[in-house]
Write a protein that binds this DNA or RNA. Sequence first.
RNA 1: GGGCGUGUAGCUCAGCGGAAGAGCACUCGGUUUACACCCGAGCGGUCGCAGGUUCGAACCCUGCCGCGCCCA
Length: 878
Amino acid sequence: MTESSTTPQRPELPAAWQPSEVEAELYQGWVDHGYFTADVTSDKPPFTIVLPPPNVTGSLHMGHALNHSVMDALTRRRRMQGYEVLWLPGMDHAGIATQNAVERDLANNGLSRNDLGREKFVERVWEWKDEYGGKILDQMRRLGDGIDWTRERFTMDEGLSRAVQTIFKKMFDDDLIYRAERIINWCPRCQTALSDIEVEHSDDDGELVSIRYGEGADSIVVATTRAETMLGDTAVAVHPDDERYAHLIGTEVEVPLTGRRVPIVADEHVDPKFGTGAVKVTPAHDPNDFEIGQRHGLPNLTVMDGRGVITVRGPFEGLDRFEARPAVVAALRDQGRIVAEKRPYVHSVGHCERCGTVVEPRLSLQWWVKVEGIAKAAGDAVRDGRTTVHPAELGKRYFDWVDNLHDWCISRQLWWGHRIPVWYGPAGEVVCVGPDEQPPSGDGWRQDEDVLDTWFSSGLWPFSTLGWPDKTADLAKFYPTSVLSTGYDILFFWVTRMMMFGLYAMDEVQPFDHVYLHGLIRDANGKKMSKSRGNGIDPLAWIDSYGADATRFTLLRGANPGSDLAVAEEWAAGARNFTTKLWNATRFALSNGATVDRPLPARDALTDADRWILDLLDQLVSDVDGQFEGFQFAKLSEALYHFTWDEFCDWYLELAKVQIAEGGERAEATQSVLGHVLDVVLRLLHPLTPFITETLWKTLTGGESLVISEWPKPSGVERDAVAAERVEGLKKLVTEIRRFRSDQGLRPTQKVAGKVRGACCVDLLDQVSSVKALTRMTEPGDDFAVSASLEVGLPKGTVKVELDTSGTIDVVAERKRMTKDLAVAEKERAQCEGKLNNPAFTDKAPADVVAKIQARLAAANADIDRLNARIAALPEAK
RNA sequence: GGGCGUGUAGCUCAGCGGAAGAGCACUCGGUUUACACCCGAGCGGUCGCAGGUUCGAACCCUGCCGCGCCCA
């Protein structure tokens, strides 16, 4: 047997934790050891998270930092639990955003994309991507993401492009993708179609203008916020039941300024209560009008080009839509046709999510995904429990969405993206080409000019990144993924699309078992962080100042399910303080011989304090486990914080000092308990704060790495309720003595001789020495003279503490303190008596509740008697 | 207009049927050999308002008011 009893040489911990000096090196070490690389041949059960791919143009913001902290915590815990963990990184190509960025660069050199031509432009985007894109991937390393860099993917890489073409072909052949002319959301600046969710609505100031169409008795007044579109009116519509206009239905009226005569039609869609109850119908420039037009066979008259410039011959030709609007109104006013004008008129206006330009509804030939069937399947997967949404309340929003989804416009008039794999032939042929097929060639054949919505490719992410459409080992091992984590604002972008595609492509197997939706980051006043407000905080600045651990802990500690989280510098400083506390506590424990080299002594060789902290630790392990399973990050962070600081540091470490001072076996046992508790706490904290825990744990245990260590399990030992009661009694006693000292103005350092009487009667005999140590109470000498005493009521009786304060007592402070206690006790008595005197309570309340109230009343009465006697015995204040 | 959520200490939030809690802020006292990024002791709340259910309501129900988000 070797000399295992000697403490092995440990590297000395620096006096202070300096995260910025060690984080990068620690991180690289983890990566180099391959800890984050998933082994597809492993027998371990899989745990998979695909990173919702950030935008290639993006950089890390607080929302990412939160989401990454969540995913890293989840995956690190599962890795420790023995799962084969795959956390897969990558980015999406962000069609509009990236193209905009490159076009801006070109514009600075006086060039447009058309100057370069499509091929050269796309080359330029790739160059831009290589040089500027993917900043966020480096920033993820700063946070400590335990991610498998060997499997990094990009939506435009070869394999994923192949997946896009494969699914397009499959859906085309299944009639789930079709081409149709409809009203779409058009961004006149980005020059492309947008899907519904890429449009953001806001209430803007506008105008409501009422215009008289026609003459005399046959005239009709319509109200509009977009007067310029009247140039394209092809009807006026009223509600069929609206008696005011019944006589006009079927007649014609002249559209002012145009000389065009249009029918007055009856349509259920018209709201008789809005404006005059009559509306102008512009089928080519309004989605609702388009539907009316379809129902009544109206012509579609386009009056603007893709830039929003009026194309109708006449005085308005060449005017931008926003110049044309006042010009049209002025011309109508000249003709006396303006009946009313309301400005400002607040109404909902759609804006391009990427550039903020007011979206123009535009009649256009686009490609669409027919969503009805796949959206229903996406809803069913959640309804029947294959996928669980956390928090559950957000499931409703998910159902509302998938159950009412419109067909999805997937073509974009961009150059950067996956080009639609459809070729048009000279005789009107339309051929969709799969990835292994040769596109038709020859005269007159051309490929569709448009590319696909970026979401069309990132929607495939949970399986395309694993090798689909090939039947790869990764796909077999790691699909379906375990958790998708993202902000609830991305629910419709991410979750629904991945669900639709995943179920469709993977034979109805859901892309993820759990969806965790976290809240949005807000500032200290609860305001959403945004560039325009200027209230954003850069997570990297926090990492620089407070460390990655504190940054992560701040965010996780705020992550309550279903609600947003406010953060501010003070929060991060608080988390940093916590890491410092942990650092100092471990350093102290180590300097006092804390060790994991010896097994924990048997329970009966331990003190009450030892058993108490070990039992609390056990409870912590199971609490944290449960909270992890329920995605309760705020709760588990709080539990770990509370245990570490308020129980372990504030009480156990202080008690351990007393026990170690005893020396011998007691000291050795205490060192083992210290080592054990720290070992477990560091493991539990590691998923949240990987860097500091790794550093401390390696020093404590000499182990290789926490990353690959085992996740703690509850010991299964029965909790010692007696020990817990004794420690609680000790705490109460200590707190009351400290309170007395503080009220009496005794300096915290001042030692006071004292006696604790009656400890045996309340089963606290073993605790007396600790009580005295924690309250700076010294042994009474021969000259001991009681100058002050206090009584502390405990569940089993009253303990009397006698002190020699070698001087007079502050009677006023004493009276104040006891009077306050008396008031509390009297209030308690009144409350308890109120209940017990109510027969309905004693009859109907459960027996244990009644017994509890009776016990409380007894305690209150005892306190009152004692305090009254004490107050009466106080000398008169001078 | 429809839906969802939310109003608890100065601020940010837990608690969601049986004694009002945390962090930060604030007040007082402290260079106690782990830690001043700290320690000890305090102050602070008719739990948005009004009804109802219950022996008992911050918690359940109804209505109202304020705020937020999503959808139209």
